[in-house]
Structure formats: structure tokens, C-alpha cells
Amino acid sequence: MSVSAFNPQASVFDSFSGAVDFIFSPRDEVGVGGEVGGLGQVAEFLWTHVWISALALAVAVALTLPIGVYLGHRGSGELLAVAIGNAGRAIPELALIALMIAFVGVGVLNVTIALLILGIPPILTNAFVGIRQVDRDAVEAARGVGMTEFEVIARVELPLAVPTIMGGVRTAAIAIIATATIAPLAGVLTLGDFILNFNVYGDDGLLAGAILVALLALVVELLLAGLQRLLTPRGVMLQREAARAAA
């Protein structure tokens, strides 16, 4: 069992300071064997966690965004986009990884595929909805001044849909990072290993893993929010602010 019993006597402060200590300085493994914890191991697991998540997200975006944008532009396939979005929410991440281990196999490639599958629904749905919600008058005006369909997408619909599309990418990123936490079940050692192998890392490692995963998610969320601000046209930003002020 890799679940902690957590000593009820230990104070909350002791628990968290133990976890911080685990992150910064290596210590002896709980069972037999070598050293665990410390910045070196944290960096190693963090790196795996980040690159496998980034890879999965990048592939999910590359595969899904064009489809969502195209469907949104054409205004067809709404049922499909919405159904996939709903299905994405209904499939437990634990079930996805467990089923993968049971029927497909373990390893980096399989985990990457599972993670990218998880990223697809929010990206697809938000891309579709974002493009769909673009003011039809703006699109008609764009056609009216002689833009080709491609130009309509690239110069009008995409810029206006940035907030919604990025919302989908952020949701996907968080889902992928969260699920990468249980990737050690499939043999990929991410920060989740601290959590899942209690026998090796102990209470402090478990809590340290939780803290690190939470921080990673928050940092990524902040970075993507910043990216969204950069990508959003100023006019759209002002419009949203005005709407918020009015509400």
C-alpha cells in the first residue's frame, strides 16, 4: 500500500516543514536502500513531469485545434464537439490510466498518448464554441471586404476567439498535469512518484509531492494566462472589461 497513515500527533506545521525539508535535502529511504528526496531528485521528476505534459499538450493542440476551428467556422459538427467535451469530463483520469496499463501497456509513449487524449475534449469544445461565438456581423463584414475564407479565419475569427480557445488549452494543461501525477503507475517517474510510493518516500515525500504538483499546476496556469493576455487583441480585452464592469 502506498497510502500514508499520517501520524495524528504530528502538528500541521511539522508535517509541512517536513515536506519542505524533503524537497531541499536528501535523506535515507524509508525502507532499505539509498537516498531519496532533495533538489536533485525533485528536479529529475519535475523535468519528466513537465516535458511529458508539454509534449502531450502540444500534440493535443496541434491535432485538435485545427479541427475545432474548422468545425466552428463551418458551423457544423456541434453535436460532436459538445459530446466529446461532455465525454471528456465523464471519464475518470484514474480509469484512463488503469485501463491503459491493463490493456495497452506501460511506458512513455503510452502515457503520452493517454495524456493527449485527455487534453483533446476541452481544446476541441472551446475551439468550436469560441469560433462559433464570434459576432456573425464581423464575419460577414470580413467577407464583404473581400477576405478569403482562410483570411476570415486567420484575421477575424481566431483573434476574436483567443480568450475562449486559450480557456480550453488551460483546462487541458491542468488536466494533463494532474493526470501525469499518476503516470508512475505506468512506469513514468513524474512528481507523482513521491505520492504513490509511500513505502519509499514516507509522509514527508508524499506531502512534498502534493505541494510540488500543486505549485507546478499554478505556475503553468499563470504562464498560460499571461500567454492568453499576449495573444488577445486589445479591443477584445477592452470589450470584456467593459462587459465585466457593467455586470
Binding site: I174, I177, A178, T181, I182, G192, I195, L206, L207, G209, A210, I211, V213, A214, A217, L218
Partner: peptide, 8 residues
Amino acid sequence: IPSIALFL
């Protein structure tokens, strides 16, 4: 915050 982290 990923759910598993929040639980822990």
C-alpha cells in the same frame, strides 16, 4: 490544484 494533490 490537481485533485490528487489537494487530497493529500
